[in-house]
Each structure stands twice: as structure tokens, then as C-alpha cells.
């Protein structure tokens, strides 16, 4: 029960993008088409869940026993960077069109603060291994959810009559703000 609550909390109530404002770059960059947004979400789900596992292992098996908590940031970034490289290779092999569609945003997952944030949250809140994994899954599902919802809205916006000065980034940020407000409504859920 506690794990389900943790999952829902990470995915919806404390959504990484819409509540913590982490990972805004791909949120605005890859949310033009639902397909690309969903694939980006899958890549992030993969990277995030493995990051939560490996960073927990590294943190508890190496850093804490040797009192090297100070290295957390560097080590986590190392873990994330390697994983992203790995995901990039896999995607390039499996689906070249997807590789081109994601473009620069795929390597940019490396510097995505949502993923570093995830690793640091897990260590800060002292989650257990299972809790960390569930938290990572929830957070990445929430990220995908936000991305796909945003992409859906933006696909509709293509045909909308938008004031000239708000076209492009302007209307996108307004939509992101309203979406964020809507997700705030989930705060009383738990």
C-alpha cells in the first residue's frame, strides 16, 4: 500500500515536471508530437528506473561505507551519463527514425536535472532499495504523462487561433503554467 501511494505521489501529486519544475528543457523541446513525446518518455523511464537502482547501489555499497557522500553529485552524473550513452546506442540500433526525431534531446537527458534530482531525492529521503525503484518508476511515468499531455495540447494548438505575439514559446509556457496549476489540484489526493 505504501509503495502504491509512493508511486502515485511521485507520478501525479509531486510530478517532477509540473510541481518541481525539473526537466523543463525536454518538456518544452520534445512536446510537439505525441509520438516523439511518448518515445522520449520511454527513454526517460528506462534511464530513470535504472538510475534509481544503480545510484542506490553505488550510494549504499560504496559511498556510505567509505564516508564519501561528498562524491554523490559526481558519481550520480557519471552513472546517468553512462546510461544515456547506452540508451543512445540502443535507440540508434533499434530505431534510426526515432533517433533522428529525438535528436539533441537524447544526449541532453544526461544533463536533465529531473534524473539527477531523482538520484539525489532517493539518497536525501533515505528510501530503501524497493522504495527507490518505485519512486524512480513513478517519477519517470509522471514525466512521460506530463510530456504526452503537453504534446496532445500542442498538437491541438497547431490549428488554434493564437495572437501573433504569443505564437511559439509564449503560448507553450502559458499552457505549461495552466497544466501545472491543474496538477496542483491533486495535492489533496493523499
Amino acid at each position: 500500500m505504501e509503495l502504491i501511494l509512493l508511486f502515485i505521489s511521485a507520478a501525479i501529486i509531486n510530478n517532477f515536471v509540473l510541481s518541481y519544475f525539473l526537466g523543463i528543457c525536454p518538456f518544452l523541446g520534445v512536446s510537439k508530437k505525441i509520438d516523439a513525446a511518448f518515445s522520449m518518455g520511454l527513454a526517460v523511464i528506462f534511464v530513470m528506473s535504472i538510475t534509481s537502482v544503480i545510484s542506490w547501489l553505488v550510494n549504499h555499497l560504496i559511498l556510505i561505507p567509505f564516508h564519501l557522500e561528498i562524491l554523490q553529485y559526481v558519481v550520480f552524473i557519471l552513472v546517468i551519463a553512462s546510461l544515456v550513452q547506452f540508451v543512445e546506442m540502443v535507440i540508434k540500433k533499434i530505431s534510426p527514425p526515432l533517433y533522428r526525431a529525438l535528436g539533441i534531446f537524447l544526449p541532453l537527458i544526461t544533463t536533465n536535472c529531473a534524473i539527477l534530482g531523482l538520484a539525489l531525492f532517493i539518497s536525501l529521503r533515505e528510501y530503501s532499495f524497493i522504495q527507490g525503484l518505485v519512486f524512480g518508476l513513478g517519477a519517470s511515468v509522471g514525466f512521460t504523462l506530463a510530456l504526452v499531455i503537453m504534446a496532445g495540447i500542442r498538437e491541438e494548438l497547431e490549428t488554434a487561433d493564437i495572437p501573433e505575439s504569443l505564437k511559439g514559446a509564449g503560448i507553450t509556457l502559458i499552457v505549461a503554467g495552466i497544466l501545472s496549476l491543474a496538477f496542483m489540484g491533486f495535492a489533496g489526493l493523499i
Binding site: L63, L71, L78, S82, Q85, F86
Partner: peptide, 25 residues
């Protein structure tokens, strides 16, 4: 610290090099 970082770095580098060969396009 140096030792840990070095070993971790080498470990990931080795993993990536294996992956690179396996997923070579």
C-alpha cells in the same frame, strides 16, 4: 575518493565499450 571514481569510471567505460560493439550500427 580518487580510487572510487577511477574504478567506477573504468567500470562504466568497460560496460559502454561492450555495448558499443554489441549495438554497432
Amino acid at each position: 575518493s580518487i580510487l572510487t571514481m577511477g574504478i567506477l569510471g573504468a567500470f562504466f567505460a568497460y560496460g559502454l565499450s561492450i555495448a558499443k560493439n554489441k549495438f554497432k550500427v
